[in-house]
């Protein structure tokens, strides 16, 4: 049997949207391209914001950093909404299984009490710090320019809220779902000297007006240090100190941090290589925030891992900055 398909008259008259064609040529486009480029409105705004009358509603001047084309900040992961949720859905399925396994085997009960207390004192309060990360990235979504970066920022923001919930779930896994550990952890967050520097840093970042400065303070300076302390150094520490089971519960945060760093490295690199103006501005922010981060993290890093830990984390930050051409 032959099937006749009439295809001769079914030729497309164009391959993609005009703005995509202007950027990438007349050829079929990827879904990332169509979903991302030039989506932000750029011209002919109607009203002055009641809360920011000197700027337009979408205004590149909401940061001191200047880009010829904000769409240069492409996400190396090419996440638009669909791939983002599908990727995170897979990761959460894995996390869900880990948590189930942990609970089913009663692994929480087999932890020795000093380790349990250490987790409640020095790990679970991260759930609050993650809320600041959520807000700082949401700030960039609201005030940033170009969907390439603003969409990645909201993905980061939602991720960080997810992190806050996972840290809380670790608490629930340890306290048998009573929530007692969360209440204790919150007291540590509010008054334990180990946390006050971090809390002050978080509160300070929430008052930043320039959205790219918020990105630097949060996603570059603080996160690089936190990621190294918690997801590398503390990971090793747990392995050596009978805490392997807990690694199951940290896996999501660890994997996610790696994934996110590919994006934030790329954003940083593109912005600082754009111009001297940008790299000077970014350097100025970094020098301000690294001093604050040093003070903020010292007591926490010492309590968590000992005196040398923070210096090691700063070495990682140094390396990360050097890699993108920022020599502090």
């Amino acid at each position: 049997m032959t099937i006749e398909i009439k295809t001769s008259t079914m030729k497309p008259i164009r391959n993609t949207y005009a703005h995509i064609e202007r950027r990438f040529g007349d050829k079929p486009a990827t879904r990332y391209q169509e979903a991302t480029y030039d989506v932000h409105s750029t011209h002919n705004f109607h009203y002055k914001p009641l809360w920011d009358q000197d700027r337009q509603i979408n205004d590149p001047a909401r940061t001191a950093v200047v880009m010829g084309d904000w769409y240069d900040l492409k996400d190396p992961r090419q996440f638009y909404y669909g791939p983002y949720v599908q990727n995170r859905s897979k990761m959460q399925e894995n996390a869900e299984n880990n948590f189930k396994f942990f609970e089913k085997r009663g692994l929480g009960e087999s932890l020795n009490s000093s380790l349990r207390e250490k987790i409640i004192e020095l790990v679970i309060p991260m759930r609050h710090a993650e809320v600041a990360a959520n807000l700082n990235n949401m700030y960039g979504t609201a005030h940033g320019t170009g969907t390439a970066v603003t969409q990645a920022l909201i993905f980061e923001a939602m991720d960080r809220f997810g992190n806050a919930q996972y840290f809380s779930k670790i608490g629930l896994a340890l306290d048998g779902n009573t929530g007692d550990s969360l209440a204790t952890a919150k007291e540590h967050w509010m008054s334990n000297p180990a946390w006050q520097g971090v809390r002050a840093y978080c509160e300070k970042t929430l008052t930043i007006k320039d959205w790219f400065e918020a990105f630097i303070a949060q996603d570059i300076v603080l996160d690089t240090l936190i990621n190294d302390l918690y997801y590398r150094q503390f990971d090793e520490w747990l392995t050596q100190n009978n805490g392997r089971d807990l690694l199951l519960l940290m896996e999501f945060m660890q994997d996610r941090a790696k994934d996110s760093q590919r994006w934030s490295d790329s954003v940083l690199k593109v912005v600082v290589t754009e111009s001297e103006h940008n790299s000077n501005q970014v350097l100025a922010w970094i020098s301000t925030w690294r001093i604050r981060a040093q003070e903020a993290l010292e007591p926490l890093a010492s309590a968590l891992l000992g005196d040398k830990a923070l210096a090691d984390a700063f070495a990682v930050l140094e390396k990360r900055l050097t890699k993108v051409g920022l020599n502090c």
Binding site: Y47, K48, L50, W51, D52, Q53
Partner: peptide, 12 residues
């Protein structure tokens, strides 16, 4: 009078 963050809010 319009309720805006600053009292000197004026449109063009």
């Amino acid at each position: 009078t319009i309720r805006a963050l600053r009292d000197d809010y004026h449109g063009e």
